[in-house]
Amino acid sequence: MEILSLSAADLDRRLPDLADLLHACVQDGASISFMLPFSPDDAAAFWTQKVRPGVAAGTRALLVAEADGRLIGTVQLDTDTPPNQPHRGEVCKLMVHPTARRLGAAKALMGALEAEARQRNRALLTLDTRTGDRAEPLYIGLGYQVVGVIPGYALNTARDGLHGTTIFYKEL
């Protein structure tokens, strides 16, 4: 497995792979802000409209995991913080393709993200995830601390109910 940092030009070249990854994760029920139905075009639009501007501006790091030449995961570090928070970054959209789970990609991506945060002089990371999600034990195992749970935070991907979100932080 290899972890790579993508530039805006790399994102453009890898857009089909990134869109396929996001689409597969949402179809598998990942709670990463999207609702069903969710099309491949919706996935491509997310990368070009929401992620690419920050990558191009240098305020967002986009890391990907590849195995055997295939993109299997991604995570983002958002450092577009207010002037009074230059020491903080936000972990965004950790995704691993449903067919590539349990291979260590999420852990490797988070390790690379933390190294990137340190390079950017970020000493505090925050994130949130759906309460009860399979990612919670990963974050706890990586040393993230639970701040609390906000109940009824977001709709389920299938729009059939609300779920809570768990807020985490880690000091680097």
Rank of each mutant, 00 (worst) to 15 (best):
M1K: 09
E2Y: 08
L6M: 10
L6R: 01
A9E: 10
L11C: 11
L11T: 13
L11G: 07
L11N: 05
D12M: 01
R13Q: 14
R13C: 06
R14Y: 10
R14W: 11
L15D: 03
P16R: 03
D17E: 15
D17L: 15
L18A: 07
D20R: 14
L21Y: 00
L22T: 06
L22N: 01
L22M: 01
A24D: 06
A24Y: 04
C25V: 01
V26E: 00
Q27D: 04
G29T: 11
G29R: 12
A30C: 05
A30Q: 06
A30W: 03
F34S: 04
L36G: 06
L36M: 08
L36Q: 06
P37W: 01
P37G: 02
S39N: 00
A44Y: 13
A44F: 07
A45N: 08
F46G: 02
Q49W: 03
Q49E: 13
K50Q: 07
V51R: 14
P53M: 15
V55H: 10
A56M: 00
A57W: 10
T59P: 05
R60Y: 07
A61P: 00
L63Y: 13
L63C: 11
L63Q: 11
E66H: 11
A67H: 13
D68S: 14
G69W: 00
R70M: 12
R70S: 06
R70Q: 15
L71S: 04
P83C: 07
N84S: 08
Q85F: 07
P86M: 08
G89I: 12
E90C: 06
V91A: 05
V91W: 06
C92W: 13
K93P: 05
K93Y: 02
M95G: 09
V96K: 12
V96N: 04
P98L: 00
R102T: 03
L103E: 02
G104C: 13
A105S: 11
A105G: 11
A105T: 15
K107A: 07
K107V: 04
M110R: 03
M110A: 13
A112K: 03
A112Y: 14
L113S: 02
L113K: 02
E116A: 12
A117K: 04
R118Q: 09
A123M: 11
A123F: 14
L124N: 09
L124T: 14
L125C: 10
L125H: 03
L127C: 03
T129H: 03
T129I: 03
R130Y: 11
A135Y: 05
E136A: 08
E136C: 06
P137F: 02
P137C: 03
L138H: 11
Y139M: 09
I140N: 07
I140R: 15
I140L: 15
G141M: 14
L142V: 01
L142Q: 15
G143K: 01
G143P: 01
Q145K: 14
Q145R: 15
V146K: 15
G148F: 12
G148T: 11
G148D: 07
G152T: 04
Y153I: 03
Y153M: 09
L155Q: 05
T157Q: 13
R159A: 10
R159D: 04
R159M: 10
D160M: 14
L162C: 04
K170N: 07
K170H: 06
L172S: 05
